[in-house]
Amino acid sequence: MSSDAVLLEALDVTRTYRLGRDVQVPALRGVSFQVERGDHVAIVGSSGSGKSTLLNLLGALDRPTSGEVRYDGRDVRTMSDAELAELRNRRIGFVFQSFQLLPRLSAVDNVVLPLVYRPGGRRERRERAIAALTAVGLEDRLDHKPTELSGGQQQRVAIARALVTEPSLVLADEPTGNLDTRTGDEVMTLLEELHSERGTALVVITHEAAIAGRATHCIELRDGLIVGDNGGGA
């Protein structure tokens, strides 16, 4: 079963969305695999195949209809709201396709955001946020609002926000989907560098074969089922 190296484990996970009374959409129909510490996993598949649904379940943003998502052997479904919040805050960093920065806040304040949900002083939070922004090469854009930044820069802020909490896992849902190829490559390179430097596990949804190719472990989804899984896993 789960060894110490296993960070996260999905066991026969299904997720069915209900639309209205009778319509049910089975987005995931029984998915099992593992993510080990420091792993680099790519999830590929056509649009609507269930990739985002899976990532949300891995990120404890959502609970499976059946099956288990286990963190350190503990089933997410048995966790309380507060425990889920703490799991998301301490263990997971999200990077979204649409950046999801708060437009009112400066780059630093956006990066500070996850830190306000844990103990600590304001000064310390700000210092950590600045360090994170420096790590993504935005030390000279600290006080810029998202609208004053390019798409690539915005996604770098989002990456800084994902990493500032020093999570054990970064989940990225098509992080380059809203960027042009060159900027996308730069952002992806940055994510991969930070992953290998810090030993943070990285799970990334992508359409690009090159990106998937660099992952140590690639899962292909089709109609809510895993149709290809190269290496590792359950």
């Binding site: 943003l61 919040a85 998301r88 999801q100 996850p114 949900y117």
Partner: peptide, 16 residues
């Protein structure tokens, strides 16, 4: 709504 969703993703509890 989006801000609330984001805050939850970043670790805000329902009570927060």
């Amino acid at each position: 709504t989006r801000e609330i969703g984001l805050r939850k993703a970043l670790g805000a509890r329902t009570t927060d």
